[in-house]
Design a protein around this nucleic acid. Structure first.
Lengths: 147, 147
DNA sequence: CTACAAATTCAAGTTCACTTGAGGTCAAGC
DNA sequence: GCTTGACCTCAAGTGAACTTGAATTTGTAG
């Protein structure tokens, strides 16, 4: 019933209208129609946007997020992929916890350099054991500038 | 005694040599001298790099990291800033935990669309209540790692 | 000594996630 | 009917964090 215009979605989601257009272009959200030129959104887009924000804050790229929550018609979600992502998050959380403890300690500890503080070093070593996710760095071969 | 050349540091840290030069240029690390043109690094640089990687994985920018762990001569670290960062991390960890639980649930739940699953929605709503910082939330964007 | 693989500098290029700007459209208020 | 301002499109720009290319120097093996 209550379709939202882009300004309203922007206001409620806290995202810029340009971001919403960008996300639509990328297929992360969809407008449900137009009034003249103006996009109209279903209120449900707010949930989706919340989800996207959550994913982003967890360090997922827009592409990953798009892949994770299927593009509308397809509720076909790779459950194994989700579980894998959850495990990845688990490891990330562990590392962040270590970092948080490290920072808290550093804020209180009197050692001249934190790198010399045994407590800090111990924390760091613990963090190191949580492997970073295997990111792909596929960079396109650069082309010579066309004349 | 055992100074490391850039290739060795690259090998041991898992970072590309170009990244190490880039970090040096940015003042995040320092080479302890040169043999001819070649940089020489103190083994301690590995700790520093681990710290940088940790900070990066926690979503801090290089600039923030540089500011947090003073540039060598200055052990002057803003303790209040560290504590603040720790709190920020705390909030982040909470949100990530929600996301992790959400993903785990989604991987197991049979609902056609996760957005329609009450459990998932409840989790999401919980995540939402961990208010995002106004503008600068810019979170964990873990990078590369080619073999 | 010579060759060469590796290291150096510096400028320019790449990706990601958006933002900005120019120029155009249109629904609503006066 | 006309003005206005929000919205639209499309191209180009931004900043962070690196990477890559080209030209050059050099430590080290042969």
């Amino acid at each position: 019933m209550k379709d939202l215009d882009i300004a309203e979605v922007a206001r409620r989601s806290g995202m810029a209208a340009s971001t919403l257009r960008f996300y639509e272009e990328k297929g992360l959200i969809a407008s449900i129609g137009r009034r003249g030129l103006r996009r109209l959104f279903d209120p449900g887009v707010l949930d989706r946007l919340a989800l996207i924000a959550l994913g982003r804050s967890a360090g997922f790229s827009l592409e990953e997020i798009a892949g994770m929550f299927a593009p509308d018609g397809k509720p076909q979600i790779r459950r194994d992929l989700l579980a894998e992502k959850a495990d990845e998050l688990e490891r990330m959380i562990r590392r962040l916890s270590v970092l948080r403890d490290g920072l808290r300690h550093a804020a209180r500890c009197g050692a001249p350099s934190h790198l010399e503080c045994p407590t800090f070093r111990r924390l760091m070593r613990a963090a190191g054991s949580g492997r970073l996710p295997p990111q792909k760095t596929e960079m396109a071969r650069p082309r010579r500038r066309p004349a």
